[in-house]
Write a protein that binds this DNA or RNA. Structure first.
Length: 260
DNA sequence: ATGGTAGAAGGTCTA
């Protein structure tokens, strides 16, 4: 069973690229971030034609997340609990029922960028991370397999960015950001890419600016965090860099994990 | 030190 995450940077602008990748990679479950459209504008039919069930938590212009699954799912939750005033579409969660394996809960995450830092946007990011930690604690109590997958906008460690020095003050890499990420991870979750490729470079994002892709000035900010029950089933994980090198791509590339 | 690009939108804002 393959679970993937892909920040598409507008599903409308990059639909061809995204469908191309789906037809090659054929994930069983996928979460998308930055669809940048309302529910009605999401091209659900394109995914239904490929055998996916679709759930969308959309928003006009900004953010927006979607969950796609070849297996049926239930208990769809839209929005991260813990702040009634938060109207950003950044979280979608469901319980998925694979045909030949135990159920898996999947959460699609688009964690706030947080720049400029310090400031109100950074405060929002750190609060959002506290709420995510609280949700992870709730899910851990169920003691079943779950995967938190998405664009975390967090560079976990120095080796996850081409030049850590240059990124010291940035909201994606500040010490407080990394500490908040560790708080979530150290609840007992496993970073799938780090687990499979502990020493290697696995960038998932390259800015459109300054020739970042050509110079391989990347960041590893898209992650799949696994509950112990999911980590026990982990077979493989990887980053599909090729998608970033195509014509008119998203600035992120897909990340996936394979489970037995 | 600045601005470089991209997307949604048709203002600038977000990243």
């Amino acid at each position: 069973m393959k679970i993937a995450t892909y920040n598409v940077n507008s599903i409308g602008a990059h639909l061809t690229r995204v469908l191309e990748w789906f037809d090659e990679a054929r994930p069983d479950i996928a979460v998308l971030q930055e669809i940048k459209c309302v529910d009605e504008k999401f091209p659900a039919g394109e995914f239904e034609d490929r055998g996916y069930n679709v759930a969308v938590h959309g928003q006009k212009t900004y953010n927006g997340v979607a969950l796609l699954s070849k297996y049926p799912f239930e208990e769809v939750k839209k929005g991260l609990p813990g702040d009634e005033a938060d109207d950003h579409a950044r979280y979608i969660e469901a319980m998925v029922f694979p045909a030949e394996a135990k159920p898996v809960r999947i959460a699609g995450i688009y964690l706030p960028n947080g720049n400029p830092a310090p400031g109100p946007k950074y405060d929002y990011k750190l609060k959002w991370m506290k709420r995510l930690k609280a949700r992870a604690e709730e899910l851990l109590a169920f003691e079943d397999a779950f995967v938190l997958a998405g664009d975390f906008n967090v560079v976990p460690q120095a080796e996850d960015v081409y030049d850590p020095h240059e990124w010291e003050g940035d909201a994606l890499y500040r010490p407080e950001t990394r500490a908040a990420f560790r708080e979530i991870l150290y609840l007992g979750l496993t970073d799938a890419i780090r687990q499979i490729n502990p020493m290697g470079v696995s960038y998932t994002f390259w800015d459109y600016q300054r020739g970042a892709w050509e110079k391989d000035h990347g960041l590893r900010i898209d992650h799949l965090l696994l509950s112990p029950q999911a980590a026990d089933r982990l077979k493989d994980a990887g980053v599909d860099r090729a998608a970033r090198g195509k014509e008119k791509p998203s600035d992120h590339t897909p990340v996936w994990a394979e489970f037995r």
